[in-house]
Simulated assay, not measured.
Amino acid sequence: MSIQVTIVPVTAYQQNCSIIKCLATGRGAVVDPGGDVEQILEAARKMDVVIEKILLTHGHMDHCAAADVLRQRLGVKIEGPQKADDFWIAKLPEWCQMAGFPHADAFVPDRWLEQGDTVTVGEQTLQVFHCPGHTPGHVVFLHAEQRVAWVGDVLFQGSIGRTDFPRGDHAQLLNSIRERLFPLGDDITFVPGHGPTSTFGQERRTNPFVADARYG
C-alpha cells in the first residue's frame, strides 16, 4: 500500500473531503475542502501528514469553499478543476449567499487541469480525467497503483450527479461515466462527493442510470 486515505465529511452537505497521504514521504493533499477547516486540519494531524497541495474536482461551493482559506493558512497551491468551472468559482460569494452557506471569497486555482494531466502527492502520481456533465470543468483523480479514484459529483453509489445546474449536461455526464470512467476497470474503488464508496464494477452492474443493462 502506497497511500493512506481518510474521508472527512464536511459542511451541512456532508461532502466527502479526502486527505491523501503518501506513505513513503509523509506528504499529502486535501481533495475538495468544502468547509470545516479545523476539522480537516485535525484529521491531517491525526494522520501525521504534511499537506502540500489542495486538489479540486469541481467548482461547487460544498467542494471548494474552504480551498483558498486552506491555501493561505498552509502556504500551498490549489490544482484543479478544469478551467470551464471558472465561472462557478468566480461567483462563490453569490452562490454561498443564495444557499445560506458560509461565506467564501472567489479565488483562482494555481493550476487548471486538463484531460491527460497528472498531479503528484508526495512520490505518488494521480491521473486526471476531464469528466464534464455535472459541471463543465469537472475532473476525476485516479491513483492507478492502489486502484482508487476521487470522482466528486460525477458518480455515486446507485446514482449519478445532478445536471440541472448552470451548464450541466445529462448526456455529457452519462458519456463521461461510460466512456472515461468505466473503462478504467471494474476493480476501481471510488470516493464520491457524498455518501458511501463503491466500485465501477458495482455501478456497471446495478446503477439504474448507467448500468450495462441500460445500454444493451
Rank of each mutant, 00 (worst) to 15 (best):
M1E: 08
Q4A: 05
T6L: 13
I7M: 04
I7N: 04
P9S: 09
T11Q: 01
T11P: 00
A12L: 02
Y13K: 05
Q15G: 07
C17D: 04
S18Y: 04
I19C: 01
L23S: 05
T25I: 12
R27S: 01
G28N: 05
A29E: 05
P33Y: 11
G35A: 06
G35P: 00
E38S: 04
Q39D: 03
I40V: 07
I40W: 02
I40Q: 01
L41S: 03
A43K: 03
A43S: 13
A44D: 07
A44G: 02
V49F: 07
I51N: 01
L56Q: 04
T57W: 01
G59D: 09
H63I: 10
C64P: 00
A65W: 00
A67F: 06
L74G: 12
I78N: 11
G80M: 14
F87Q: 08
F87T: 15
K91P: 00
P93C: 15
E94P: 00
E94M: 11
Q97G: 13
F101N: 06
P102C: 15
H103R: 12
D105Q: 15
A106Q: 02
A106K: 07
A106N: 11
E114I: 08
E114N: 12
D117V: 08
T118M: 11
T120M: 11
G122K: 00
E123K: 04
Q124I: 11
Q127S: 06
P132I: 03
T135V: 13
P136W: 01
F141L: 05
L142A: 06
H143S: 00
H143R: 03
H143K: 03
A144D: 11
E145Y: 10
Q146S: 14
R147E: 13
G152F: 06
D153Y: 09
D153S: 04
V154L: 06
L155P: 06
Q157D: 12
G158R: 04
S159G: 15
S159V: 10
S159N: 12
I160F: 06
R167C: 08
G168L: 08
H170N: 09
N175S: 15
L181R: 00
F182I: 12
P183G: 15
D186I: 13
I188Y: 06
T189D: 14
T189A: 14
P192E: 13
G193K: 12
G195V: 09
T197Y: 10
T197M: 14
T199H: 01
F200Q: 01
R204A: 14
R204I: 10
V210W: 11
V210S: 11
V210Y: 09
R214D: 11
